[in-house]
Design a protein around this nucleic acid. Sequence first.
DNA 1: TTATAAAAAGATATTTATATCCTCAATATG
DNA 2: CATATTGAGGATATAAATATCTTTTTATAA
Lengths: 143, 143
Amino acid sequence: MLTNSSKYALKAVLYLAQYSSEEHKLMVKDFYEKINVPRAYLAKLLQELSRHKLVSSTRGPRGGFYLSEENRDQPLISIIDVIDGPTRLTSCMLSLEECNEDRPCPLHAAFQPSRIKMIRNLEQLTLRELARDLEQQRSFLPR
Amino acid sequence: MLTNSSKYALKAVLYLAQYSSEEHKLMVKDFYEKINVPRAYLAKLLQELSRHKLVSSTRGPRGGFYLSEENRDQPLISIIDVIDGPTRLTSCMLSLEECNEDRPCPLHAAFQPSRIKMIRNLEQLTLRELARDLEQQRSFLPR
DNA sequence: TTATAAAAAGATATTTATATCCTCAATATG
DNA sequence: CATATTGAGGATATAAATATCTTTTTATAA
Ligand code: FES
Ligand code: FES
């Protein structure tokens, strides 16, 4: 469904949503163990997200990563698009060149409705909303 | 969502469902181009499915692969389980050890309903049914 | 201004998925 | 029985994903 890379990225961003702020930045070495992601690989993923303005960072002493208020309003899909590429979830399940009703593959009719629902969720749910669920212990971040 | 391998396998099996029978077996070299799968790799995938009794085959002259009537009644999921492993679609989207309501990850609540629908579809739809759609040109097999 | 701490960037290594190749075993046919 | 034909199986090659290591840049604060 998702690659390991985007799972790592989502865990990292949700962790930052919970425990970081502009006043309290987190260094990679401070939390890579909490979310069980290889340290150097996590750094790479966050760099990529930073380049795309999905997480915030500053270098040097007292630097680190954090989520700005704007970052928190990003939908989940934006993380996935950057790490897995924008076609991972929307492309045809059997790799037909394009997925559409006009010339559907054999799986299309049965799967498109639930697939669309999942994608709509990813487009609508923001990091802020999921972080709130975590805070209220309505959900739990895997380590 | 699915690996290339299981997409290949599904295309192959659906092709066999349409064009093969016990009386008319198909050799790999006769159809690997039709479904655009590397010849030797397709052979490997069909061998694996054959070992699991999901496709039928005989060796020697006039041999080849085909789908028996029993093969045609298998659900899609059985192909995917053999090629991708049985946890590909059911495991937690963030790789939490187990996906359940008691201790859900942040994505669980939003995604589980549509995910379950997709999996139910895969468990219920048989090759026979999808082949019928193809025959009626209600769907099209990508090459 | 200097030393230091942190991310950014680039190079390299490892593992897994995908793909190919070669030999062996089974089966049909003459 | 001999021979040709096909899948089965094992070994190997390549590509992509995952992971690590080293160097450079930027910011802080003494
Ligand atoms: S055409 Fe294949 S999933 Fe839509
Ligand atoms: S617990 Fe993560 S998807 Fe169910």
